[in-house]
Write a protein that binds this DNA or RNA. Structure first.
Lengths: 113, 113
DNA sequence: ACCATGTATTCGCCTATCCGAATACATGGG
DNA sequence: CCCATGTATTCGGATAGGCGAATACATGGT
């Protein structure tokens, strides 16, 4: 309702970016992009302790990057905004370009992703 | 030359996102998107102390988000990857959508950006 | 060589983040 | 009602991030 000022938007923007700025959280988001999952499934699939996963999910939830739904005693986490994955993919693409540019303009091509 | 493993790429990705996860750095990047600038010009335009700007620029430089070029005694900073701004804009768009969705699905439309 | 301007760095402090370990809490079944 | 399973939270410690203030460094001009 109260529409954010530009400054507030900037702060939110930064806080979302910061949430994306952790390797494990990126793994979690990409995992959820494949399919929604239980916390325990994420923990198992990514080989990260359950409490750690839970805390990271909380961060992502605070930033509205994931949503939850109960499934009995378990909780299903899903991407709140699938478009975010597109953004992340674009960043990765840029990153690879940038890396390629750094280490020799004439380097032979490398595998994708 | 050494092409990064997926894990390494993930780490780089996270570190770049983290660099984006600070309000002042976002302001700096958007300012540089308008036009390359001296450190002092950034400091003046954004009303941020020069040493602070310098430190943030260093972070952005470490992540290869900006590049430098000497201009006499001054230093011109530019965006290393203009595409990053597109990514940031997309994120902002998503953010606004998300905010709109949160605070009432039927809320009257608000101004852009 | 010196000075003025512009940029980078250091220091100390405070806050925030991340983690492992342990524990609390919630849900549904028997 | 109690237990098993699954999830969230707390605690403590280590690490990293951010800032103001002061200072060091670099460059070009005179």
């Amino acid at each position: 309702m109260d529409q954010p000022s530009l400054d507030e938007l900037n702060l939110l923007h930064a806080s979302v970016c910061q949430a994306l700025g952790d390797p494990k959280r990126l793994l979690i988001l990409y995992a959820l992009a494949e399919r929604p999952r239980h916390v325990s499934a994420l923990a198992a699939d990514l080989d990260i302790p359950q409490p750690t996963v839970s805390r990271h999910l909380q961060v992502l939830r605070d930033r509205h990057l994931v949503t939850t739904e109960r499934d009995g005693a378990a909780v299903v986490y899903s991407l709140a905004e699938p478009r975010v994955i597109g953004v992340l993919d674009t960043m990765r693409l840029i990153l690879r370009d940038s890396l390629a540019r750094q280490s020799g303009y004439l380097a032979t091509a490398a595998e994708p992703l």
